[in-house]
Every structure is written in structure tokens, then in C-alpha cells.
Design a protein around this nucleic acid. Structure first.
Lengths: 366, 366
DNA sequence: GGGGCGACGTGTTACGTATAACGTCGCTCG
DNA sequence: CGAGCGACGTTATACGTAACACGTCGCCCC
């Protein structure tokens, strides 16, 4: 099988006019054929000739020219709190795959200061954009993103794990960062079913006999983490004799360690399980447990969120909620494309599963 | 302090002609002034007027038009083996910062199948590129990247941790993927001083009394890992009574676990230290040690490479070689800019440091 | 006094593409 | 038989920018 590219020695780069010359037609015809809109305008044989000439010359359209002509860059911006995270790497991977499928580019804007602060994403962006996808952003960062649209124009915006699902069972809930009505039709939301994830965690632990359970919640004001806290409280409230606790934690190993130490050495009976908002926090929690001379899961069970590769790197391996981050990115990109096409319809949140491993065990007797 | 952007209600987006109208000059003058090449061609007062009009209207040049005109996209491609890695996230962060400083864009191409295979990076790339930065790629992937330059033209290429440094002390070493002489002037190399890192590891361990040391080398054919293996052997050769071992490992927790089990249960005396090519492998190694009823670092010391956050998430915390990945990215981007300016000069490799933590201890007596 | 020159700008063009508007056939049908 | 129409293409234009080549002054100097 020969290479699909023939080696084209000369010339900087073939243009559509070169293809036209080679095929014996006009440049306009080349554009029509290669644009796919030649139904009934160009005969099949000339169309074939054009395509052959194009692949023959190794023609690739000049996107700068196309973008200039169309006034659209076919490029979206993905804003993530941090790039150095496996989770967001997966979100990106999912989104970029769908984007490429549709001839879209995807440029990344890693909010530099970690979750919580996002500088104007458009400053660092080259040229115009067709839309923005923001993943797991803090509330104030989201507000700023919305406010910084260039020229005040309403750019389509997709928020991932950032807004409350419009579930009918959750009617009275008003978010402080609810989108302005004007932006309604250019805004979409794609979420993991994080509430269900938390419910699964609590169910798993209470099923193992745990009653004194403390939630190590990430100290960040975003929907992603608020929904975890709320659902934790709600789920625990349905369990007789349950003793829920709660401790804020920085989103890091050290943060988890500190928070876990506070939770385990505080007044009152010691919790037998720690529910962490994140695998990283959970890793810190495990360290804290051991520093206190206790064992995971013998004395204290620990759970995480995200199912990063970290979860199985730890020893014992971490019981954690597996989030299909790649799917999230893919659905987010699809939502943006739908938004651009004017055909977006809200979809149900993405299902999550609980990966049960070795960091959870039956509650110790007494 | 008022916002720097005035709210411009109408019009889709101001063009340079709008600025010209507002400033009472021609579009050409706007272009000159804003392009910064108005020395002696435009009076300072008109230049000031133009700039004021521009910021006043919130003018931002249309990059599609500029790219079309200049034939350059001011965009580079960064090819990394995997995006879901903290290490490459840091490389990207460093590179993108420098790129933005110089008005360059940086688009990411995560080679989908992990280290070792890279599909044509240009297929997934929108439009033309000014250069490519490839980080820690396997030898065959590098070859393919070089072969897939569009139109056969020689795109400037910077390789990070991918080629031998041109150190005078290393004369006889010929790489199978040495760049063709023709591409010499459009190719640059930026490396971590990985050899020194490995020397520090071996020095640290032998200083602690270890003699039976096994290297868990990543089973990937790339310079990054070849240099580790080579330097391990060379360093061990200088130590009297040293018993070096070596075991290939897949680049994952599971791979490290398997390789460590082989190393520890093989024939001959058991090694007292495992030198891993990567923190992930080291995490697996720690698990394997414990599965055999041994302890880290009591019975077996373990070291890693990269100093990912994983290193401090583990318990005990990992002794590992800290690589300034962000610096690597930054230097790589700078090298590319120099290459484009025709002023590139090879620089010495980036120094690395050994982060000594709790996974290494004096060799057990007897 | 006029030729020249420096300072200060402007008219014009091209980059490569997509598409609206416009031919030009050959055939059919009233 | 000519009007009309469908099939098949082409001509022309605009997108916004950068830069070349060319004015148009005022002033100096021979």
C-alpha cells in the first residue's frame, strides 16, 4: 500500500487554485467540490477529477483564509482549573476527539492559579472563538468568564460540572451564579451525576456498618463540591443513628492530611470513615490515619472521588467514585456544537460508578 | 479604577479601518503604528492618537487576516506522549507561558496511544505551523514526526529530552535517530541532565550502604529512558562490590509492581534497593515490596523519577529525582523562537536535584 | 530659485477561500 | 419555433491585514 501523500517537491504549499489548474477547472469549482456542496452543481466526473487532483497535490486548505472568509474560526476554548491533573487531561482528550471529528480546533486555557481564580481567558487566546467550555470552575471564576466575553457579545458557553442540573426533583434550588435569562439560549450544562456518586459512597459505607462518617470537603466554592456536601448531609440524614461530620480540606495531599488529622483527633467519638471530595485529599487522609497509629481500612475506611491513577497507586488501593471524565469532555463539546447549530437539548447527567477497592472495610466492632 | 475595556455596544467587532476612521488617519497608518514599525514614519502625536482610538474601541486585530497576510500562524505544536500526566502538563505550562509572551499560540497534540506510537500530528492540526516541539518521544515516533512534515518542507523542530546532548565527553555515541544533516539548522535539543540525576540516585543509595541495586527501566525505546539505563550501569561500575540488576517495566503502577516482584523473587541474592525510571513505576514497586511481606524502606529502598505529586502522596514519601518540567517547556519554546530567528545556540542541560524522602534508608545489616 | 531630501502619510495590492450572481449550453414543451 | 429550464460551471467579490511604492509638503543648501 503506497503512502497517501505523494512527495511534492517544490512550492511552499499548494492552493486551491493550483488544484483547479491541475484539474482543468476554476478555483470556485474546487471550493464547491471540496466543500461538499456540489449536489447538482457539478457533474460527478469533474468532482472526482477535482478530488483526485487535490489528494494528488497533497492539498490542504489554508485555514487562515477560510476563517477570514467565513468569519468563524471553528475553534473553541476549554477552560480548566489546572492542566496538571489527570482528570482535566481526560476531559480535554474527550473534547478534542469530538472537536476534531467536526473539523473544530480546541485550545486550552489552564487557569493559572488553580481552582478558584481565573484570569481573563480571552487575553491569552489567539483570535476569535466560536464558543467556550468551562470545566469545574469556581463560581466567581465562572462569573468572570461570562463577563469577559469580547465586545460584550454573547459567546456560546458550555459549563461542565459547574451548574445545577435542571432536575425536576430539585425545584427550589437557586444558584447564586445562575445564568442571566438573556444568555439562556447560548448556555448549556453537562454534569456528572455527582449526587448519585455521593449517595453510592454513603450507601456503601453504611452498608458496611459505619455510622460515624466525616466528610472532608474541598474548600472551594463551586457546584462540583457543593453538591457533594449537600448530598452527603442529605444521605446521612436518612440513616438511623448516623453521626455525620464535616471538615474543610485544601485540594491537595497536605490539605487532606491536615483535615483528616483534625477530624480524627477532634472532640467526641472518632469517625470510622472519611469521605473525601477527591482522590488527592483521600491520599492525604490515608497518611494522616497512619501517622496516628491507626490503619486503613482496619480502623478507618477512606473513600475518594475521580478514580485517578493515584487511586490504585496507593496501598491499600482506594475505594473511589469513578467519573467518566473523557465522556464529560466529549459530551461538552457535542453540546457546544449543538448550541452553535441551535439544536441543543439538555441531557441527563452522566452516570457514575463506585469502584470498591481495599480502603473500605466493615466498621470496627465497638 | 475604571475597567480598561469600555463597553462597545454595537458592531460585531472593530477592524483596523474603524480605528483609522476614529483616529482620522488611513488604515495603513493604523497597521504601521500598531505593528510597532513606525519609527520615523509616523509622528509621535498621530501614533498616540491611533493607539488611543484603538484601545478606545477595544480593537483587537483579526488574527485570521494577519496570518493570511503574513503566511505565518505564529503557532507551534507541542507533541506529548500523554496529556493525562502531570509531567507533561508542566511542560505545557512552561512552554505556553513563553509562547504567550511572544504572541505565539501553542497547540497540543497528545499522542493518543501513550508513549511509543504517534500518529501523524499534522492531521489533527488546524492550519499551518511555524514549528514543532516534541517532548520525550520514542525514537520511532520522532522519526515519524520528522517524516510527516507537510509538503516535505523542513519545519523547525525542538526535541525535549529526546536526543543526546552534544556533550564533548560523549563523542562516540551515535544515535539511530540522529537528525539528517540537512535538517541540522532547523533542529534543536533541550534536555534535562538525566544522567546526573541517575548518578545522584546511585550515589545516594551506595552512600547508604546499598550494593545490590536493581534498575526497573521503562520498557520504551527513547532517549529519556536509554540514558537512565546507561548511566545506571556506568555509575554502578565505579562502585566496588556493586551488584547491579535490571528489569524492564511497563510505564504504569501495574508494570512497576510486576517488574519489582520479578526483581525481588528472582534467583540470587535479593536486591536491597530498586531504582525506578518513573514515580509511577516506583509506586508499583512499593506495592510489590509490601505484598511480599517486606517493608519500604526497612528491607528495600525505592527511588523514582520526576517528582510528581504522587511522590508525596505515597506513604512513605518517595525519594525521587526532581525534574524541572516547566523549565523544560519554557526552554523548549525559547529554543524554537531562537530557531525561527536564526539565532539558536545549544545550551547546557537543565540541572536536576534529588529529593530525598522516606522511601530510602541505610541498607539492612547482612 | 530650484533641486533635493527628509518627514509624514496614503493608495493599492495580495494573501486563499467561499459564495452570490451570472453565463452557456442542449433539450423539452407549449 | 422560441421560450424556458435544468445541468454545469465560471467570474467577480469580500473578508481584514501588512507592506510596497508612491505622493505631498516644508525646508535647506548650493
Amino acid at each position: 500500500m503506497p503512502s497517501t501523500h505523494r512527495d511534492v517537491a517544490p512550492g511552499p504549499r499548494p492552493t486551491s487554485r493550483d488544484v483547479a489548474r491541475a484539474a482543468g477547472v476554476s478555483q470556485a469549482t474546487v471550493s464547491l467540490v471540496l466543500g461538499g456542496k456540489w449536489q447538482g452543481r457539478v457533474s460527478p466526473r469533474t468532482a472526482a477529477a477535482v478530488r483526485e487532483a487535490a489528494t494528488d497535490l497533497g492539498y490542504r486548505p489554508n485555514l487562515a483564509a477560510r476563517d477570514l472568509r467565513l468569519g468563524s474560526t471553528r475553534t473553541a476554548l476549554l477552560v480548566v482549573p489546572a492542566l496538571t491533573s489527570e482528570f482535566f487531561g481526560n476531559v480535554y482528550a474527550g473534547a478534542v476527539a469530538v472537536a476534531a471529528e467536526h473539523g473544530f480546533g480546541l485550545v486550552l486555557y489552564p487557569s493559572p492559579q488553580g481552582v478558584g481564580t481565573a484570569r481573563n481567558p480571552f487575553e491569552s487566546t489567539r483570535g476569535a472563538l466560536d464558543g467556550v467550555i468551562a470545566s469545574s470552575m469556581a463560581a466567581d471564576a465562572l462569573r468572570e468568564i461570562r463577563g469577559s466575553f469580547p465586545g460584550g457579545q454573547a459567546l456560546p458557553l458550555v459549563m461542565l460540572d459547574s451548574a445545577p442540573p435542571t432536575a425536576p426533583g430539585d425545584p427550589g434550588h437557586r444558584e447564586p451564579d445562575a445564568p442571566a435569562p438573556a444568555a439562556r439560549d447560548t448556555t448549556a450544562t453537562v454534569n456528572h451525576d455527582l449526587a448519585d456518586g455521593m449517595r453510592q459512597v454513603v450507601g456503601h459505607l453504611t452498608g458496611l456498618g459505619h455510622r460515624r462518617i466525616t466528610h472532608l470537603g474541598a474548600a472551594i466554592d463551586s457546584w462540583t463540591f457543593r453538591v457533594r456536601s449537600r448530598t452527603f448531609r442529605e444521605s446521612m440524614a436518612t440513616v438511623p443513628d448516623a453521626v455525620p461530620g464535616s471538615e474543610p480540606a485544601d485540594l491537595s495531599v497536605g490539605g487532606g492530611q491536615t483535615a483528616a488529622r483534625r477530624a480524627l483527633t477532634g472532640p467526641g467519638p472518632r469517625p470510622t470513615a472519611l469521605v473525601c471530595d477527591d482522590d488527592t485529599i483521600a491520599a492525604g487522609a490515608c497518611k494522616a490515619v497512619r501517622r496516628l497509629g491507626l490503619s486503613v481500612p482496619g480502623d478507618v475506611s477512606v473513600t475518594g472521588f475521580d478514580d485517578l491513577s493515584l487511586a490504585t497507586a496507593l496501598d491499600p488501593e482506594l475505594t473511589t467514585v469513578r467519573l467518566p471524565a473523557q465522556q464529560l469532555g466529549a459530551h461538552g463539546m457535542r453540546a457546544l456544537l449543538d448550541l452553535l447549530a441551535g439544536s441543543f437539548t439538555e441531557r441527563p447527567p452522566l452516570p457514575v460508578t463506585l469502584a470498591v477497592r481495599d480502603s473500605t472495610a466493615p466498621a470496627p466492632r465497638r
